[in-house]
Design a binder for these strands. Structure first.
Lengths: 229, 229
DNA sequence: ATTACTTAGTGTAAAAAATACACACTATAT
DNA sequence: ATATAGTGTGTATTTTTTACACTAAGTAAT
């Protein structure tokens, strides 16, 4: 067989860092591995790129196969290419992140035996991760910190209808610090991407907060602006 | 021979987008290719990652081999992984950028026959580039635009001693718009990363401007701040 | 030495944005 | 009726951004 140029010189994989928000906690999606190396360890959902797929397509497919999730918009943020990062050989990994609302609804179900299970885990209780996945996660968290300062993007983590306090909670969790309530609300509303609903929070044993929803049309115009709290 | 896991599934390459500033022009470093495909075309300096090198190391080596330049700090900014981007097979390319002062001093000399020559070319007169390199360049330019708004980083493009007007010229070229002189100076000096020298510009046939130099120590403290003009 | 030329260098007022800060309201549970 | 817990609101101060035009200094030509 004639050698094709250029010659393959690496395995290329995808790793996905998915952030979710639920019950006041910032969570991340992990799988429990069912294959060597790092069998039985927790790891980021990841696998090899397909030869006939773009890396973006691979990312979607791999996430789906390992967790059952589909139609998740993920964004590439960095490529990890240290020589020793995979114990069995050269693997260069392209990392993606996404932010995601957790309804408790969708069950996570790996479609391959490569993962035993997939689970949302509180970022404050991260287990030891296989490979260099702790590092990949750390970089992903840095990335979304910068990201939510630029764009009011945290709605991706919330249900369709949400309260301003919920939005503030997400910001505080991601940024790791408290924000002033009045200033936060003023600023958030000033973006003009939230629509106030004629509807109140339900099932709480205190004054119910007003619900809002996110206006994607107006949101699209916001690119390039910086937010600071 | 036993198959090693994971299996190589792609060629991985590096492409370098180097910006330089000289004689009032923003330039980019290109090579003229000496190999198929795109023989005799202009292209970004790029080649395959070595199997025993990190992608960062590969980037430095490849830049050196194709242009003779060394000790250039480059930053990774995106990985291009569309299926059809290389006509001869699957190649995923990790792109790096750098900003660089051009002294006219260092000659560019490819150390391999893979490039016929390397040359700094005005970004306003870009030739047609091979592969998807126009796209990679466009993304690189976007990246440095965002970058110089965040950090007063344009000094990398300037000689050790420079005038404020030179700094402003660089900003205007990269951002593609005129800036107000008084506001620019006020802002730039307010960062406190410039040291005014007891020295004036030489060899000009008009009032000589004060020279400044860049203070790396103070600069290191600036990360995270946003600049806007 | 006068003049013309070219770039350097400077300040202020107005508008906009960011920050700091505290209490009354309202729904529920008992 | 009362206790409780989170909701929702305004203003004054400071900081940052923007807009804007002339004089100063050095060189070159006559």
């Amino acid at each position: 067989m004639e050698e094709v140029l250029p010659v393959f010189n690496s395995a290329v994989s995808i790793d996905c860092v998915l952030f979710g928000f639920d019950a006041g906690e910032l969570k991340i999606l992990l799988i429990e591995r069912n294959e060597e190396p790092f069998k039985d360890w927790w790891a980021l959902p990841g696998n090899l790129v397909g030869e006939d797929e773009s890396v973006d397509q691979s990312a979607s497919r791999i996430l789906h196969e390992l967790t059952g999730l589909s139609d998740i918009y993920m964004e590439q943020y960095y490529t990890f290419g240290e020589v020793g990062r995979h114990p069995q050989g050269r693997v260069i990994s392209v990392a993606y992140y996404a932010m995601l609302r957790l309804g408790g609804d969708k069950a996570l179900k790996p479609l391959t035996s490569y993962a035993k299970k997939a689970q949302w885990i509180n970022v404050k209780e991260l287990p030891k991760l296989g490979f260099d996945h702790q590092h990949i996660f750390d970089k992903g968290l840095e990335k979304i910190k910068r990201r939510i300062k630029h764009l009011p993007i945290a709605f991706e983590l919330l249900p369709e209808k949400f309260t301003l306090t919920q939005v503030q909670n997400v910001y505080e969790l991601i940024l790791g610090k408290k924000l002033d309530k009045r200033n936060f609300r003023k600023k958030m509303l000033s973006f003009g991407v939230l629509k106030e609903l004629d509807e109140k929070q339900k099932g709480v044993s205190f004054r119910a907060a007003t619900l809002y929803k996110f206006d994607r049309r107006k949101y699209a115009k916001l690119f390039g602006k910086e937010i600071s709290f």
